[in-house]
């Protein structure tokens, strides 16, 4: 591994961390606003929460599968960190794989394993119920999500993320393929189990997959969730919003601005919308979103054949 690569990786992780912090802080601000408490203190809430969880002791339940549970909580933030390796910041990705879109998908699917390991490992009914809920949700969102990713790849004729971003010189893919864009955002919320897709961690099952977590384990899980959401928002920019393209500022500034805007929309939507239960979402996903994304892929394929994009 070369020296500049290491620096790029470090920078990428710092930026991802900052975006994750912003996500956590923004949702805290929205919560404070809706409960009528002053929102200023919420900007430091993730920091204070981190400190609180760091000094807190781990709880241990009898018969817990500690090994799987620990692997799970570490795997979750790692999945987000590995997913961003292929996202170009302006023109520069940490490693611009020729199959970057597939890489992102594979890394984000690791969340399935992570959440199930955590839920199972806690040896608690609620943990297992939450874990299985997340897999059911995964089966619901994953196919439309894959079609959304493929559609962007078809539009650019490449699975390399920077190629897809460069291909949107004249018009953003969000305009060419609005269905794929919306489905990608929805599944971004779903795979990071953020509201409104947070039923796997719902209050109705005592915190679900995270029911037994405390201390640093809970910190890692929550960090992983915010990092995953940030990674989803960052990925939506090169796929659908023209990447770093924009007037006046250099590419990386636009990339960050667009990512922050997408994050604000996602967190805001999660804050406003009622929770979506996975069995409801499954029917919507398979009967509405899946046909729509297939038709969208067909339309984009025809655009490409006609030479319109």
């Amino acid at each position: 591994m070369t020296e500049p690569m290491l620096w790029k990786m470090l920078l990428g992780l710092i930026l991802l961390g900052a975006l994750g912090y912003a996500t956590a802080a923004w949702s805290a601000v929205l919560r404070a606003k809706s409960s009528g408490t002053p929102a200023v203190a919420s900007w430091s809430y993730p920091g204070r929460e981190t400190a609180r969880l760091l000094v807190r002791q781990r709880t241990a339940s009898p018969g817990a599968d500690t090994m799987l549970s620990r692997i799970g909580v570490v795997l979750l933030p790692m999945a987000a960190m590995m997913a961003i390796l292929v996202i170009p910041l302006g023109t520069n990705a940490i490693t611009d794989l020729s199959v970057g879109v597939v890489w992102f998908n594979a890394m984000e699917v690791l969340a399935w394993a992570a959440v199930w390991m955590v839920g199972w490992g806690s040896n608690s009914v609620w943990g297992l119920v939450g874990a299985n809920r997340f897999l059911a949700q995964g089966l619901a969102y994953e196919l439309p999500h894959m079609f959304a990713l493929i559609t962007a790849g078809v539009g650019a004729g490449s699975l390399r993320v920077s190629d897809i971003a460069d291909h949107q010189g004249h018009l953003w893919f969000a305009v060419y393929m609005p269905v794929a864009f919306v489905v990608f955002l929805l599944s971004g919320l779903a795979f990071s189990f953020s509201p409104p897709f947070a039923q796997a961690f719902g209050a109705d099952i005592a915190g679900g997959a995270a029911a037994q977590l405390s201390g640093v384990d809970r910190l890692l899980l929550r960090t992983g969730r915010y990092l995953l959401l940030a990674a989803a928002a960052a990925m939506s920019v090169p796929l659908f919003l023209g990447g770093g393209a924009g007037p006046l500022f250099p590419g990386w500034v636009w990339m960050l601005l667009k990512t922050l805007a997408v994050l604000a929309v996602l967190v805001g939507a999660g804050h406003r919308l009622p929770g979506v239960r996975m069995e409801r979402f499954t029917e919507i996903s398979w009967l509405v979103l899946l046909p729509l994304t297939i038709v969208q892929a067909l339309a984009v394929s025809i655009f490409v054949l006609l030479g319109w994009m």
Binding site: L97, S98, V102, A113, W116
Partner: peptide, 21 residues
């Protein structure tokens, strides 16, 4: 075979998790 290799990772993770259940 980068496409196939990463696809194996993707598919195996999904498949084995469903299998676990």
């Amino acid at each position: 075979l980068s496409y196939l290799g990463i696809l194996v990772v993707l598919m195996m993770v999904m498949e084995m998790l469903i299998m676990a259940v």
